[in-house]
């Protein structure tokens, strides 16, 4: 996965809600296979930034360009809606905090995983089902649960199913919004373990929004600390957590409960 070009270039991205700041003047580059964590307290603009990057929201100003599979650079906000939606269901993934937002709760697990394949034109039932079985296995969901609806799944299983559903088309970039939010600690640990394995095996690039510094420590190589819509510190994850420089980051790191 070594390339000398980044996957995503973001420059001076700002989003205002009226006169209120969503996020302001965010610039960074994301490289293939790299996991970037965006941390900060509630209301710091993490999710606004993620929604802008994944084109679910249009920014007020600034640009974001993405290197497509054919190596051409495209400005995300100048693409047609059809192209953006195609990108979102093939080369990208989006893992929501609440799995019900990212899953179709009324169709079976197998169909949830297979939907993206069918959306890109796969019309062979046997192959779709085989991929679904394979992906459920990779996220540690038993093959015997393939025909169950996600409603019958626990929170952790739903989250794993959501991940499988996103990864089935081998995306190169995955956005995650608090992927472990709302899960208890032991389930969180398993999910993080699984995510870390998948990200390394598949060479995924990911942008993970989280308020949990432990998640950032485990998953990401680089992190960005946000406060009041602005980036206050960026750097390698271990460096930022072990030697925080901005006063706010110092506060954040020292606020972690020690057990």
């Amino acid at each position: 996965m070594m390339t000398d070009e980044p996957l995503l270039r973001v420059s001076a991205l700002s989003k205002f809600y009226g006169s209120r700041i969503g996020c302001e003047d965010v610039s960074f580059e994301l490289w293939p296979g790299e996991v970037l964590a965006v941390v900060g307290e509630s209301g710091s603009g993490k999710t606004t930034l993620l929604n802008c990057l994944s084109t679910r929201l249009l920014p007020t100003s600034g640009t974001a360009s993405y290197r497509m599979r054919d190596e051409t650079w495209r400005d995300l906000y100048r693409m047609s809606e059809a192209e953006r939606r195609f990108l979102m269901r093939t080369d990208w993934g989006f893992v929501h905090q609440n799995p019900a937002d990212g899953l179709r709760m009324t169709v079976s697990a197998g169909a949830n995983v297979g939907e993206r394949l069918m959306a890109v034109g796969d019309r062979h039932y046997g192959n779709i089902r085989a991929s679904a079985v394979d992906w459920l296995g990779r996220v540690e969901i038993g093959e015997d649960r393939i025909d169950d609806e996600p409603r019958a799944f626990s929170g952790g299983m739903r989250q794993r199913l959501q991940i499988a559903r996103n990864l089935v088309t081998s995306p190169r970039l995955v956005f995650m919004d608090e992927p472990t939010g709302g899960l208890d600690v032991s389930v969180q640990a398993r999910l993080l373990d699984l995510l870390r394995g998948l990200v390394t095996d598949l060479g995924l690039a990911a942008i993970v929004v989280t308020h949990d510094l432990a998640v950032a420590r485990l998953l990401s190589q680089r992190m960005m600390v946000m406060k009041d819509g602005r980036v206050v510190e960026t750097g390698l994850t271990d460096r930022v957590l072990d030697d925080p420089r901005a006063p706010y980051t110092q506060l954040l790191v020292s606020s972690i409960l020690q057990v």
């Binding site: 179709r104 169709v107 079976s108 197998g110 959306a119 089902r129 393939i146």
Partner: peptide
């Protein structure tokens, strides 16, 4: 929007469900 953009993968999800069940 799905009709406009010819995104009909979902229709096959229904048929998939039929076969699965």
């Amino acid at each position: 929007k799905m009709h406009a953009l010819e995104e009909y993968g979902l229709m096959h999800v229904k048929l998939y469900e039929d076969i699965a069940r």
